[in-house]
Protein backbone atom coordinates (compact mmCIF):
# COMPACT_ATOMS: atom_id res chain seq x y z
CA UNK A 1 0.00 0.00 0.00
CA UNK A 2 1.23 3.48 -0.80
CA UNK A 3 2.91 5.20 2.06
CA UNK A 4 1.65 8.66 2.85
CA UNK A 5 3.97 11.17 4.39
CA UNK A 6 1.80 12.45 7.20
CA UNK A 7 4.42 12.54 9.89
CA UNK A 8 5.65 16.08 10.34
CA UNK A 9 8.47 15.19 12.65
CA UNK A 10 12.02 14.67 11.55
CA UNK A 11 12.71 10.99 11.49
CA UNK A 12 15.56 9.42 13.36
CA UNK A 13 18.57 8.98 11.14
CA UNK A 14 16.93 11.09 8.48
CA UNK A 15 17.27 9.89 4.95
CA UNK A 16 18.16 12.50 2.31
CA UNK A 17 14.55 12.61 1.09
CA UNK A 18 13.15 13.23 4.55
CA UNK A 19 15.90 15.74 5.04
CA UNK A 20 14.64 17.59 2.03
CA UNK A 21 11.08 17.14 3.20
CA UNK A 22 11.53 19.33 6.28
CA UNK A 23 13.13 22.08 4.19
CA UNK A 24 10.28 21.94 1.67
CA UNK A 25 7.72 22.05 4.48
CA UNK A 26 9.53 25.05 5.94
CA UNK A 27 9.70 26.78 2.56
CA UNK A 28 5.92 26.48 2.38
CA UNK A 29 5.67 27.99 5.85
CA UNK A 30 4.14 24.82 7.18
CA UNK A 31 3.88 25.34 10.96
CA UNK A 32 4.48 21.64 11.49
CA UNK A 33 8.01 22.07 10.15
CA UNK A 34 8.61 24.92 12.58
CA UNK A 35 7.19 22.81 15.36
CA UNK A 36 9.44 19.84 14.72
CA UNK A 37 12.48 22.12 14.51
CA UNK A 38 11.50 23.73 17.82
CA UNK A 39 11.05 20.33 19.42
CA UNK A 40 14.47 19.23 18.31
CA UNK A 41 16.51 22.41 18.52
CA UNK A 42 14.92 24.83 20.98
CA UNK A 43 16.38 23.07 24.04
CA UNK A 44 19.69 22.54 22.25
CA UNK A 45 20.08 26.22 21.42
CA UNK A 46 18.89 27.28 24.88
CA UNK A 47 21.56 25.12 26.44
CA UNK A 48 24.14 26.49 24.02
CA UNK A 49 23.22 30.11 24.78
CA UNK A 50 23.01 29.48 28.49
CA UNK A 51 26.56 28.16 28.60
CA UNK A 52 27.79 31.32 26.93
CA UNK A 53 25.55 33.88 28.62
CA UNK A 54 25.31 32.16 32.03
CA UNK A 55 21.72 33.38 32.25
CA UNK A 56 18.68 31.17 31.67
CA UNK A 57 16.18 33.89 30.79
CA UNK A 58 18.57 35.67 28.43
CA UNK A 59 19.34 32.33 26.78
CA UNK A 60 15.66 31.64 26.13
CA UNK A 61 15.15 35.13 24.72
CA UNK A 62 18.12 34.70 22.40
CA UNK A 63 16.81 31.32 21.21
CA UNK A 64 13.33 32.72 20.64
CA UNK A 65 14.83 35.50 18.52
CA UNK A 66 16.71 32.97 16.44
CA UNK A 67 13.54 30.96 15.72
CA UNK A 68 11.59 34.10 14.91
CA UNK A 69 14.23 34.91 12.30
CA UNK A 70 14.17 31.33 11.02
CA UNK A 71 10.41 31.50 10.53
CA UNK A 72 10.64 34.88 8.79
CA UNK A 73 13.34 33.58 6.46
CA UNK A 74 11.62 30.22 6.00
CA UNK A 75 11.41 30.37 2.18
CA UNK A 76 15.20 30.78 1.88
CA UNK A 77 16.29 27.39 3.20
CA UNK A 78 17.19 24.60 0.82
CA UNK A 79 18.03 21.65 3.06
CA UNK A 80 18.40 20.74 6.70
CA UNK A 81 22.16 21.41 6.75
CA UNK A 82 21.39 24.93 5.62
CA UNK A 83 18.82 25.25 8.43
CA UNK A 84 21.27 23.89 10.99
CA UNK A 85 24.05 26.25 9.90
CA UNK A 86 21.65 29.15 10.17
CA UNK A 87 20.59 28.14 13.69
CA UNK A 88 24.13 27.85 15.03
CA UNK A 89 25.40 30.94 13.27
CA UNK A 90 22.47 33.01 14.52
CA UNK A 91 22.62 31.84 18.11
CA UNK A 92 26.36 32.46 18.16
CA UNK A 93 25.94 35.99 16.78
CA UNK A 94 23.03 36.77 19.07
CA UNK A 95 25.04 35.63 22.08
CA UNK A 96 28.07 37.61 20.97
CA UNK A 97 25.94 40.73 20.66
CA UNK A 98 24.62 40.22 24.17
CA UNK A 99 28.17 39.71 25.48
CA UNK A 100 29.41 42.83 23.70
CA UNK A 101 26.65 45.03 25.03
CA UNK A 102 27.21 43.62 28.50
CA UNK A 103 30.88 44.40 28.14
CA UNK A 104 30.12 47.98 27.20
CA UNK A 105 27.98 48.33 30.29
CA UNK A 106 30.47 46.70 32.58
CA UNK A 107 33.50 48.48 31.14
CA UNK A 108 32.73 51.50 33.23
CA UNK A 109 33.12 49.50 36.40
CA UNK A 110 35.63 46.80 35.70
CA UNK A 111 37.45 45.04 32.97
CA UNK A 112 35.18 42.31 31.72
CA UNK A 113 36.38 39.83 29.19
CA UNK A 114 34.80 36.70 27.97
CA UNK A 115 36.55 33.77 26.44
CA UNK A 116 33.88 33.51 23.73
CA UNK A 117 34.62 37.00 22.46
CA UNK A 118 38.10 35.90 21.43
CA UNK A 119 38.09 32.18 20.99
CA UNK A 120 36.51 30.68 17.88
CA UNK A 121 37.62 27.21 18.93
CA UNK A 122 35.48 27.49 22.04
CA UNK A 123 32.48 27.92 19.75
CA UNK A 124 33.48 24.96 17.63
CA UNK A 125 33.60 22.79 20.75
CA UNK A 126 30.23 24.05 21.92
CA UNK A 127 28.67 23.30 18.54
CA UNK A 128 30.11 19.81 18.50
CA UNK A 129 28.70 19.10 21.96
CA UNK A 130 25.35 20.56 20.99
CA UNK A 131 25.22 18.48 17.82
CA UNK A 132 25.95 15.22 19.64
CA UNK A 133 23.07 16.01 21.99
CA UNK A 134 20.88 17.00 19.03
CA UNK A 135 21.64 13.70 17.31
CA UNK A 136 20.58 11.78 20.40
CA UNK A 137 17.44 13.88 20.79
CA UNK A 138 16.67 13.18 17.14
CA UNK A 139 16.79 9.47 17.87
CA UNK A 140 14.36 9.95 20.76
CA UNK A 141 12.28 12.82 19.44
CA UNK A 142 9.25 10.73 18.60
CA UNK A 143 8.98 9.79 22.25
CA UNK A 144 6.71 11.77 24.52
CA UNK A 145 8.75 13.83 27.02
CA UNK A 146 7.95 11.37 29.80
CA UNK A 147 9.03 8.40 27.73
CA UNK A 148 12.27 10.19 26.88
CA UNK A 149 13.05 10.87 30.53
CA UNK A 150 12.48 7.25 31.44
CA UNK A 151 14.64 6.06 28.57
CA UNK A 152 17.49 8.40 29.49
CA UNK A 153 17.35 7.36 33.13
CA UNK A 154 17.23 3.66 32.28
CA UNK A 155 19.86 3.63 29.57
CA UNK A 156 22.27 6.45 30.27
CA UNK A 157 21.98 6.55 34.05
CA UNK A 158 21.28 2.83 34.40
CA UNK A 159 18.70 3.50 37.09
CA UNK A 160 16.38 0.72 38.23
CA UNK A 161 12.63 0.81 37.81
CA UNK A 162 12.22 1.69 41.49
CA UNK A 163 14.65 4.57 41.27
CA UNK A 164 13.00 5.95 38.14
CA UNK A 165 9.55 5.54 39.62
CA UNK A 166 10.63 7.42 42.70
CA UNK A 167 12.29 10.26 40.80
CA UNK A 168 9.34 10.77 38.49
CA UNK A 169 6.69 10.03 41.07
CA UNK A 170 5.24 7.15 39.06
CA UNK A 171 4.33 3.59 39.84
CA UNK A 172 6.75 0.78 39.06
CA UNK A 173 4.22 -0.69 36.69
CA UNK A 174 3.98 2.55 34.74
CA UNK A 175 7.75 2.69 34.37
CA UNK A 176 7.78 -0.92 33.19
CA UNK A 177 5.05 -0.25 30.62
CA UNK A 178 6.74 2.90 29.40
CA UNK A 179 10.02 1.10 28.98
CA UNK A 180 8.26 -1.50 26.88
CA UNK A 181 6.78 1.27 24.71
CA UNK A 182 10.19 2.92 24.42
CA UNK A 183 11.69 -0.34 23.26
CA UNK A 184 8.98 -0.92 20.69
CA UNK A 185 9.51 2.59 19.35
CA UNK A 186 13.20 2.29 18.69
CA UNK A 187 14.25 1.34 15.20
CA UNK A 188 14.79 -2.38 14.76
CA UNK A 189 18.55 -2.08 14.41
CA UNK A 190 18.79 -0.12 17.62
CA UNK A 191 16.39 -2.37 19.47
CA UNK A 192 18.93 -5.14 19.08
CA UNK A 193 21.34 -3.22 21.31
CA UNK A 194 18.88 -2.48 24.08
CA UNK A 195 16.81 -5.54 24.96
CA UNK A 196 19.36 -6.70 27.52
CA UNK A 197 18.88 -3.62 29.57
CA UNK A 198 15.19 -3.13 29.04
CA UNK A 199 13.84 -6.62 28.71
CA UNK A 200 15.73 -8.17 31.59
CA UNK A 201 14.18 -5.60 33.88
CA UNK A 202 10.81 -5.90 32.23
CA UNK A 203 10.62 -9.57 32.82
CA UNK A 204 11.31 -9.25 36.50
CA UNK A 205 8.12 -9.38 38.54
Amino acid sequence: MRKKNVNPYLSPGMSPSQDLHIAIQLKNKDPEALQSLIHLYFPILCRFARRILQDKAAAEDATTDVFVKLWQKAPEFDDSQHIKNFLYRSIRNTCLNVLRSRQREEARHETFTDIYLHDEDAFAREILQAEVLAEIRKELQHFTPRLREIFIMAYFQQLSNEEIAQKLNLSNQTVRNQKASALSLLRKKIRAKFPLLLLSQLLLP
Binding site: Q35, I38, P43, R47, F67, W71, L133, I136, R148, I152
Partner: peptide, 27 residues
Amino acid sequence: KQWLADELLSMESYDLDVAMQRILSSS
Protein backbone atom coordinates in the same frame (compact mmCIF):
# COMPACT_ATOMS: atom_id res chain seq x y z
CA LYS B 1 26.76 8.39 29.83
CA GLN B 2 26.37 10.32 33.06
CA TRP B 3 27.26 13.57 31.34
CA LEU B 4 24.89 12.79 28.47
CA ALA B 5 22.07 11.93 30.84
CA ASP B 6 22.50 15.15 32.85
CA GLU B 7 22.58 17.29 29.73
CA LEU B 8 19.66 15.52 28.04
CA LEU B 9 17.47 15.61 31.14
CA SER B 10 18.20 19.29 31.73
CA MET B 11 16.83 19.97 28.26
CA GLU B 12 13.47 18.45 29.14
CA SER B 13 12.55 21.44 31.29
CA TYR B 14 11.36 23.70 28.46
CA ASP B 15 7.71 24.12 27.58
CA LEU B 16 8.03 23.84 23.82
CA ASP B 17 4.37 24.59 23.09
CA VAL B 18 4.75 27.91 24.89
CA ALA B 19 7.97 28.51 22.94
CA MET B 20 6.14 27.81 19.67
CA GLN B 21 3.37 30.26 20.59
CA ARG B 22 5.89 32.96 21.49
CA ILE B 23 7.78 32.46 18.25
CA LEU B 24 4.65 32.56 16.11
CA SER B 25 3.25 35.62 17.84
CA SER B 26 6.59 37.45 17.56
CA SER B 27 6.78 36.65 13.86
